[in-house]
């Protein structure tokens, strides 16, 4: 059986490698994907028109949330469904009592010096991580960043609380009810802004029509619309990243964690 697998892998690899010679060279600006052959390509359009269409300097953010807004909306939905699926598969309530045995949350009680060092370091680091995560979300227009990256960092800060102390300490700050509501809220913000455009008699996720809502011109309204849906993405990603950790680390019981 192992040999059959190895032969299949080597054959597939050889087939793929035999086609490598036909690919464009590495870093070729005139390769078909970079749109240098014809007179018009979609990636060139994105680079040249982003500034006048949306006033967002980061082309990746503009393409992500505006030109390909549908893609990102359903990507957010995929993450939401994955989180709900993990909760549905793993979540179980232990018989007898809602919570497991209460553990001392205060690191100083049991006299374990390593836990004091880790606890104090994390107490200093976690607010910095969270503020930086919010900066990454908010500054996605001008630098690499945005809802997905900032959301993962914000979720990681809650995971760090769960790792450095215990899961109860993290759940006291970000309870199960709260992260489920936040995940739903994120998808609702994204879809809601799309629906708002639809109600104002334009296409779904066509933020240009929201100029009255944001009190700006239609081009700036697209920039603000992108930021609004990025916040929705950040909410969902934060909540689902923490939900995945909390359920996996406690076998779905949400009691002690690792």
């Amino acid at each position: 059986m192992k040999w059959i697998g190895l032969i299949a892998v080597v054959l597939t690899g050889a087939l793929l490698l035999s086609a490598v010679g036909d690919f464009p060279d590495f870093g070729d600006p005139k390769s078909p994907a970079n749109g240098g052959v014809g007179d018009f390509s979609v990636s060139q359009y994105y680079i040249t028109h982003t500034e006048q269409d949306t006033k967002v300097p980061n082309v990746v953010t503009a393409v992500l949330a505006d030109y390909r807004g549908y893609d990102t909306m359903f990507e957010t939905t995929v993450i939401f469904i994955a989180g709900i699926g993990i909760i549905a598969i793993l979540r179980s309530h232990p018989p007898g009592g809602r919570r497991g045995p209460a553990h001392p949350i205060d690191a100083t009680v049991d006299g374990d010096h390593q836990r004091i060092i880790i606890g104090i370091t994390c107490r200093i680091m976690i607010p910095i991580i969270q503020i930086f995560a919010l900066y990454v979300v908010a500054h996605g227009h001008h630098s690499p960043g945005g809802g997905f990256q900032g959301g993962v960092m914000l979720g990681a800060s809650f995971i760090l609380i769960g790792l450095s102390r215990d899961l109860q300490a993290a759940l006291a700050r970000f309870s199960e009810r709260r992260f489920i509501v936040l995940a739903c809220l994120g998808v609702a913000i994204y879809a809601g802004f799309g629906l708002l455009c639809l109600l104002l008699e334009r296409n779904f996720l066509d933020y240009g029509v929201l100029d009255g809502f944001f009190h700006t011109d239609p081009v700036m309204a697209r920039s603000h619309g992108i930021f609004a849906v990025e916040v929705g993405v950040a909410f969902t990603v934060t909540a689902i990243m923490f939900a995945i950790y909390a359920n996996l680390s406690s076998k779905g019981r949400l009691d002690e964690g690792l």
């Binding site: 240098g36 979609v42 680079i47 393409v63």
Partner: peptide, 8 residues
Amino acid sequence: PDHYANPL
């Protein structure tokens, strides 16, 4: 467009 990497 040649000054910026392909965003897609």
